[in-house]
Design a protein around this nucleic acid. Structure first.
Length: 895
RNA sequence: GGGCGGAUAGCUCAGUUGGGAGAGCGCAGCCCUUACAAGGCUGAGGUCACAGGUUCGAUCCCUGUUCCGCCUACCA
């Protein structure tokens, strides 16, 4: 047996047990278990990522749930994996290539993909190792990757089926384009940021030379692509302008002035330039016109101006062009004014480049039909979102959901299973535009038999594959055992930032392809911020590294901190001090274990089938076991409702302030050989360890292995032992114990407030205020002596106060400590007066309340009764305090 | 513009059906009591953001205000 060192040092211990658990296969679902199945799929981290606080919290909560359920007898599968993160990963590898003076186009597509796979093999597993360090009890034998063979098959299957149902289609319209990543983005992938810019007022001269119309814009350079000016049809100022044309400055074009109801007459000049190819609003206006307005693309895919922008501007970067356009307009006297103006600008969520609306041909999913069902499932509580407040967010988005652009112009990802016939030799083929969507590459065109087929160059949005995660990871489209056993999964644990990206889409796809919700509960946890409440980001330099926390304080303390912080519906302001505090808790537990071990050395095991009833327990044992039962109940209930912080504080309170502060101290007053005390110490400790294990897996295992019974080795690990369930309470013991505590605290207060040395043993008198209290105290006198450091205690219903004693007045007892020469009577009088004043305040308050007729008549009887009792108690207490002060004053006079 | 959340001890936060508010850290005092100084005991510290309303009674429910934070949106 290992010796327990004086303080807990996690170094080495964590690795040791993690390897042990893995080697024993404890993380795999127990095939013998007849319990309920419980399954969580991990939100797959990006392979480019490294562990941050968000992951740490997310994983810790899932691990707590899994370990708790596993110990509770469920058949648990926690399925891990990673996400290929198309754009992010491609960016990383492209950066490498750039450093080598290469770019992906110099390699060919296959060589580039190979290169990314190589990168993935070398670095992509980093985050998995970090997750393991956290203690995550995932079944690593089932680890999946969104680009692995099985998942890719699922992606193709889903694409083809949705296409065949007409829910996936291809269209040419404006999309969000990132000029740096060179790809289309979905609406969600655009981050809007409020920025200060300029509103430029430009005069557009009428073609007939009869004046001008002024438009206001934040993007002067797009005027080169204007194809109309729009005004509100009811705007009297512009009634006569409608139907006329303006000569678009800097170009040779004439464009019409058109009416459109979407124009806000009160904004700017009430006239708006229309650039259909570079603005979503303008696109809508253009399409409403009949005939539709022309689309002129003046900005290209790299963010620079096209030929259509005119030779003077072609090739310029869009921002350079803006400057030049303004300069040119100024020279012509066409700038009316410039105004400072703050507005939201869309940025690429991967690289923060300002996105450009561009007209391109892309693939879309029509998601409305899927969303409808997904909304219903949440409305009908087939899926519970916890905390419930997030339901509104979900509904708001789902009810206004727009088609999802799923094609990306990058190489790393699931290539779109579409081929284009290059010949289109017959009408049928032409009708289909030569588009062939197929699970496998078709040998010839199914329409016209041509052999010239070219696959679509694009890949799918990474979130498309993530949306299938809950069933693709379980083996779909095959009908696997895992799928049958574990789908629907039990709960999804995630942050609110990906409710739309991921959660909503998983619900839609799960319903569509499995005909069943993907999970029963969605637990939305907080965002981890820094101490000041700011989002952690590398640029702000306020990032706290979880690995550093684990190094510094140990994984257990770190995990416990996260759990203790995880109150529902509130963000976490992470503070390192809290971690330090919980490291102390780990150490406290460790030392409690040392004590228990040392005191029970010659009888180190809990008897098999430990039955509380077989012992003739004294009050302290009955009390601590009842408190233990209460704690177990609290924790199970809290975990059931995802109240991690409540569970954590409950067990913290119990272990430190009940077990250590009271029970262990009381146990010390017993002879160490007392069988009932030793058993109770061991039982309480061992049960506490099991309660704590989901939160602090390592230290609990280490201690557990050190104290576990050697003879009856039923279980090899605390991980697979039983989670404490409900045990009987002993309310009488809890009530009786409060008398003891009052007596002890009374003596301690006197000691503390009068600065009497703890080493000085006191003689104490205790006046009991009821026969029952009297009996309890007499029977348990040794504990009071021990805890209050008293030499002699005189107890009785009629114990008289000795002159010159300090007094502490409690509900069930009065405590007198004669202080002989030590007593500072003035200080003692002050102390009592202060106490008296507090009591007086409460009496006044209650008095007012009890004189209130309305209260007496309308408040529930038990409340009135309770207040009356309290009032009487306080009045008696006040009388006793007054009496004591009087006596002290008499002493003072005598002296 | 719309929506959501927050404001409680010096700091970070709990507070579950409305019945005079708690923890951790910090602070002050006394202690190295043989599990633990990463500890023990005792204590100080709060008009529960502000103003109304409902109620016998409000930190809690309703309305409004102020200050933060977030999400969302096509006013150029």
């Amino acid at each position: 047996m290992l010796e327990l060192r004086k303080s807990y040092n996690p170094k080495g211990i964590e690795e040791k047990w993690y390897e042990y658990w893995v080697s024993k296969g404890y993380f795999k679902p127990d095939s013998d278990s007849r319990g309920n199945t419980y399954c969580i799929v991990i939100p797959p981290p990006n392979i480019t990522g490294s562990l941050h606080m968000g992951h740490a919290l997310n994983m810790t909560l899932q691990d707590i749930l899994c370990r708790w359920k596993r110990m509770s007898g469920d058949k648990v599968l926690w399925l891990p994996g990673t996400d290929h993160a198309g754009i992010a990963t491609q960016n990383v590898v492209e950066k490498q290539l750039t450093a080598e003076g290469l770019d992906r186009h110099k390699l060919d597509r296959d060589a580039f993909i190979e290169r990314v796979w190589k990168w993935r093999t070398e670095y992509g597993g980093k985050i998995i190792h970090q997750l393991k360090r956290l203690g995550a009890s995932c079944d690593w034998s089932r680890e999946r990757f969104t680009l692995d063979e099985g998942l890719s098959r699922a992606v193709i299957e889903v694409f083809v089926r949705l296409y065949e149902e007409g829910l996936i289609y291809r269209d040419n319209r404006l999309i969000n384009w990132c000029p740096r990543c060179h790809t289309a983005l979905s609406d969600l992938e655009v981050e809007h940021e409020e920025l200060e810019g300029k509103l430029t007022y430009i005069k557009y001269p009428l073609s007939n030379g009869s004046g001008h119309i002024t438009v206001a814009t934040t993007r002067p350079e797009t005027m080169l692509g204007d194809t109309a000016v729009a005004v509100h049809p009811d705007d009297s100022r512009y009634k006569d302008f409608i139907g006329k044309t303006v000569a678009l400055p800097l170009t040779q074009r004439k464009i019409p002035i058109i009416p459109d109801a979407a124009v806000d007459s009160s904004f700017g000049t009430g006239a708006v330039k229309v650039t259909p190819a570079h603005d979503f609003n303008d696109e809508a206006i253009a399409k409403r016109q009949s005939p539709a307005l022309e689309f002129i693309t003046v900005i290209g895919k790299d963010g620079s101006m096209t030929e259509d922008a005119g030779s003077r501007y072609a090739g310029l970067d869009r921002y350079e062009c803006r400057k030049l356009v303004i300069k040119d307009l100024k020279e012509r006297g066409l700038i009316e004014k410039e105004q400072r103006y703050t507005h939201a600008i869309g940025h690429c969520y991967r690289c923060k480049t300002v996105i450009e609306p561009l007209l391109t041909l892309q693939w879309y999913v029509n998601v409305q039909p899927l969303a409808k069902e997904a909304i219903r499932m949440v409305r009908e509580e087939k899926i519970r979102i916890i905390p419930k407040s997030w339901e509104n967010t979900y509904f708001a988005w789902m009810e206004n959901i727009r088609d999802w652009c799923i094609s990306r112009q990058i190489w790393w990802g699931h290539r779109i299973p579409a081929w284009y016939c290059q010949k289109m030799q017959n009408a049928k083929c032409k009708m289909q535009n030569g588009v062939i969507v197929s699970r496998v590459m078709p040998p010839v065109c199914p329409y016209c038999g041509s052999e010239e087929l070219v696959q679509d160059e694009d890949v799918l949005d990474t979130w498309f594959s993530s949306a299938l995660w809950p069933f693709s990871t379980l083996g779909w489209p095959d009908k696997t055992n895992d799928l049958k056993t574990f789908y629907p999964t039990s709960v999804l644990v995630t942050g609110f930032d990906i409710i739309f990206f991921w959660v909503a889409r998983m619900i839609m796809m799960g319903l569509k392809f499995m005909g069943e919700v993907p999970f029963r509960d969605v637990y939305i946890h907080a965002l981890v911020r820094d101490v000041k409440g700011q989002k952690m980001s590398k640029s702000k330099g306020n990032v706290v590294d979880p690995l550093t926390m684990m190094d510094r304080y140990g994984t257990d303390a770190f995990r416990f901190t996260l759990a203790a912080f995880a109150a529902q519906g509130r963000d976490i302001r992470f503070s390192e001090e809290r971690v330090e505090g919980y490291r102390h808790f780990v150490n406290k537990l460790w030392n409690a274990a040392r004590f228990v071990k040392q005191s029970t050395e010659h009888r180190i095991q809990i008897p098999e089938n430990f039955q509380l009833s077989t012992f003739n327990f004294q009050l302290p044992e009955r009390w601590i076991l009842s408190r233990l039962a209460a704690t177990a109940d609290d924790m199970n209930r809290a975990l059931e409702e995802y109240r991690f912080n409540d569970a954590a504080s409950s067990v913290y309170q119990f272990v430190w302030h009940e077990f250590c502060d009271w029970y262990i101290e009381m146990a010390k007053s017993e002879p160490v050989t007392s069988e009932s005390v030793m058993s109770c110490l061991l039982y309480t400790l061992e049960t506490s360890l099991r309660l704590l294990h989901p939160f602090m897996p390592y230290v609990t295992e280490e201690i557990w292995q050190n104290i576990k019974s050697e003879e009856s080795e039923v279980k090899e690990s605390i991980m697979i032992s039983d989670y404490p369930k409900s045990m009987p309470r002993d309310y009488q013991a809890e009530e009786d114990m409060s008398c003891i505590m009052e007596a002890v605290m009374g003596i301690r207060s006197i000691r503390g407030e009068l600065n009497i040395s703890p080493s000085l043993e006191l003689n104490v008198s205790i006046k009991t205020l009821s026969d029952i209290t009297d009996k309890i105290l007499r029977k348990n006198l040794q504990y009071v002596k021990r805890l209050a450091k008293a030499a002699e205690i005189k107890i009785g219903r009629n114990v008289r106060k000795i002159e010159g004693s300090a007094v502490s007045v409690k509900n069930s007892v009065e405590v007198y400590v004669p202080l002989k020469g030590l007593l500072n009577i003035d200080a003692e009088i002050d102390r009592l007066k202060k106490d008296g004043a507090r009591v007086e305040e409460s009496i006044a308050f209650l008095n007012k309340k009890l004189l209130n007729e309305d209260f007496l008549q309308r408040a529930p009887e038990e409340v009135v009764e309770k207040e009356k009792t309290r009032y009487n108690e306080l009045v008696r207490k006040k009388e006793r305090i007054v009496e004591s002060i009087k006596k002290l004053k008499e002493v003072e006079v005598k002296e």
